[in-house]
Design a protein around this nucleic acid. Sequence first.
DNA 1: CACTAATCGTTAGGGCCCAAATTATCGGAC
DNA 2: GTCCGATAATTTGGGCCCTAACGATTAGTG
Lengths: 176, 176
Amino acid sequence: MAGQHTLSETESAVRGRLGDLELDFEAMSVVSNLFRAANAVRNHLERTVLARSDLTWTAFVVLWVTWIWEPIETRQIAAEGGFSKATLSGVMTTLEKRGLITRERDTTDGRLVIVNLTPAGRKLMKRLFPEFNAQERQVTQHLGNREKQAAAQALREMIRGVEREDATQPPPPMRG
Amino acid sequence: MAGQHTLSETESAVRGRLGDLELDFEAMSVVSNLFRAANAVRNHLERTVLARSDLTWTAFVVLWVTWIWEPIETRQIAAEGGFSKATLSGVMTTLEKRGLITRERDTTDGRLVIVNLTPAGRKLMKRLFPEFNAQERQVTQHLGNREKQAAAQALREMIRGVEREDATQPPPPMRG
DNA sequence: CACTAATCGTTAGGGCCCAAATTATCGGAC
DNA sequence: GTCCGATAATTTGGGCCCTAACGATTAGTG
C-alpha cells in the first residue's frame, strides 16, 4: 500500500483525511510492508523458478508439503500450506491430471484422503527445490544472520497476534 | 509452509530428501513465515473488518490508495497496490457498479483514466479505515516499538532483494 | 504528412481462492 | 441396530489474479 511514498508522506496524507484520530502508523507500516514483500517475493519466485515448470505458487507449496511429509492427509496439507481445503481440492485435481501426485482413500477411515507424490513428482521436486531455495537466499540477501532470525521471529509474533484474536469472537454482519 | 513443525524438524526432513546439498534454511524459514503471516493477517482483516462491508482485500486496497491520493491514474493505483493493471480493471468495474469510485478519461492524454472516490466511497473509508487500523495494531500487538521498526525495515530489505534481482535477470525479448 | 514504436487500459482465458452447501463417513448415545 | 452430531473432502458460485493479446492513443522519426 504505502509504496514509493515514505511513511511520513502517507501519514500526513491520512491525517488530512481523518484529522488527529488515534492511529497506529507504525502498525500500518508493518502490515503494508508485509504485503508488499509477500507479493514481490511471490511474483519473483513464480517468474524465476516456477514458470519454467509451469507451476503456480500454490501448486508448488502443495508439492513441497507433500514431498516432505508424505504420506499425508488432505487436511494436513491445507493447514500446513495455509489455504482452505476447497482451494486444495482444485489444485490437487490439476496436479493429479499432470501425474505429479496420487490420491487414495484411507482404508481405516473412509472420510480421509491420503496424498503421495508420484515418481515424476519426486523427481521434479528434487530438481526444483534447490533452485527455489537459491532464490530464497537471493531474496534475503540483504539481511544479516541475526536480522533473518529477528525477521522470522517478528513474523511468527504477527501470526500469534492474529490467531489469538481470531479465537475470541466472530463479529456480527452489518453491511453498508 | 513450515507451520506447526519446527525449523529443525523441517530441516532434517528436507535433508532426508536431498542429502547434504548447500541449502539456506534460515532463508527458507524467513520466506515461509512471510507467507504464513501475510495469509493469516489478510484472512483475519477480511473476516473482522472487510466482510461486514462486503469488501475483498484488493477492493479495500484500491479504495484506500484512491482515498489517500485522489485524483489518481489507474497505473498508479496498480503500482501502489502491488497488483497488475488487469486485476485492477476488474476490481474497479465492481467498485464502480457499487457507486464507490468514478472513472473518467484524461482530457489531455486520451490513454489515461483518472479515478476518484464518490462521496459514498469517501464516507465508507472514513468509517472503515480506523477499524482497519485498530486491527493492524492488534496484529502487531506482540511487537515492541523497536521490533516493529526492525520488522518493517527487514521487509523493505526483502523487497529490495527482489527488485534488484528482477532488474538484472529478465532476458531481453528479441523483437524484430 | 505518414510510419513506427511505445504506452495505457481493457478483455480473454485459465487458474486460484474462499465460504457455504453437499455428500459421505464415523463415533457415540440410546 | 438406529439415530444424531461431528468430521472430511468435494462441488458450487462469485470474485480475484496473472499473462498475453487487443484496440486506442500518443510520441518520435524522417
